[in-house]
């Protein structure tokens, strides 16, 4: 589904990703861990096409297409979803209108008819229920005045409505209390399927108690320095990252 081959990427003038390779197959859940500044969030932004995050060498193919050549919105329509670490507030644009615009754009790309309003509202409300967010949030401006936890839940609502092929969760667990963490985990687990893949970027092993990954990778100095199964996360929890950073 996703193949990253020897990727180098800059943020502004600074090289952050330095020769990263990773393959994600359908249905797999990959966790990416690593110390601060290792390039975890940068990887997510490069995959989502954020301006100023520029791939300088290597390649990324998504379902056989050269991902880096595509505009951000086209990547989203093909099924890539990035849950932001810091979701953005959009003043004056209601959550409902935003979600509808998003879902309509993706459906249109797939050649599907736009959802009628009744059907759409029903789905949006169900998504709210799943992540335990009051439906009133659908009427408010996107993330406007939302708490950190509410913003993260709102990201999940978007993911549930868009039904992506590949979801990249950028520290969706950070700043969440244990109840919210379980809500996030059950929403992700409910979406796991043999066709859908996840990349979980996280600092803490804690999340992986609830979402069991197929692979765990350690990112340090802009590339993957160690890969393993879910037990690697436990080992990291115990030993920290220092013993691996030499390898970077």
């Amino acid at each position: 589904m996703l193949k990253i081959d020897n990727l180098f990427a800059n943020v502004g003038d600074k090289e952050i990703i330095k020769g990263l390779s990773l393959e994600v197959k359908p249905g797999e859940v990959h966790a990416i861990m690593g110390p601060n500044g290792s390039g975890k969030s940068t990887l997510g932004h490069v995959l989502a096409g954020r301006p100023g995050y520029e791939a300088t060498a290597g390649s990324v193919t998504f379902q056989g297409q050269d991902l880096l050549a595509l505009e951000s919105e086209v990547r989203a329509r093909l099924g890539i979803f990035l849950a932001f670490q810091y979701p953005v507030e959009i003043p004056g644009v209601s959550n409902m209108e935003f979600l509808k615009a998003s879902v309509d754009a993706v459906r249109e790309h797939r050649g599907e008819e736009p959802l009628d309003t009744v059907n759409f509202v029903k789905r949006a409300r169900e998504a709210c229920k799943t992540v335990d967010l009051d439906q009133e949030f659908l009427k408010r401006g996107v993330n406007e005045g939302f708490s950190g936890g509410e913003k993260k839940r709102n990201e999940l609502i978007q993911m549930m409505l868009l039904q992506p092929q590949l979801a990249i969760m950028d520290e969706t667990d950070s700043g969440l209390d244990i109840d919210a963490l379980q809500v996030v985990a059950s929403a992700v687990n409910a979406m796991r399927s043999p066709e859908r893949s996840f990349i979980l970027v996280t600092h803490y092993q804690r999340l992986l108690d609830y979402i069991e990954p197929d692979f765990v990778h350690v990112l340090a100095g802009g590339r993957i320095v160690k890969s393993g199964g879910k037990d690697l996360a436990l080992e990291l929890e115990e030993k920290g990252y220092a013993w691996l950073e030499g390898a970077a």
Partner: peptide
């Protein structure tokens, strides 16, 4: 950019 990552042109 945020809106574009949600498929909106």
């Amino acid at each position: 950019h945020y809106m574009r990552t949600r498929g909106i042109s």
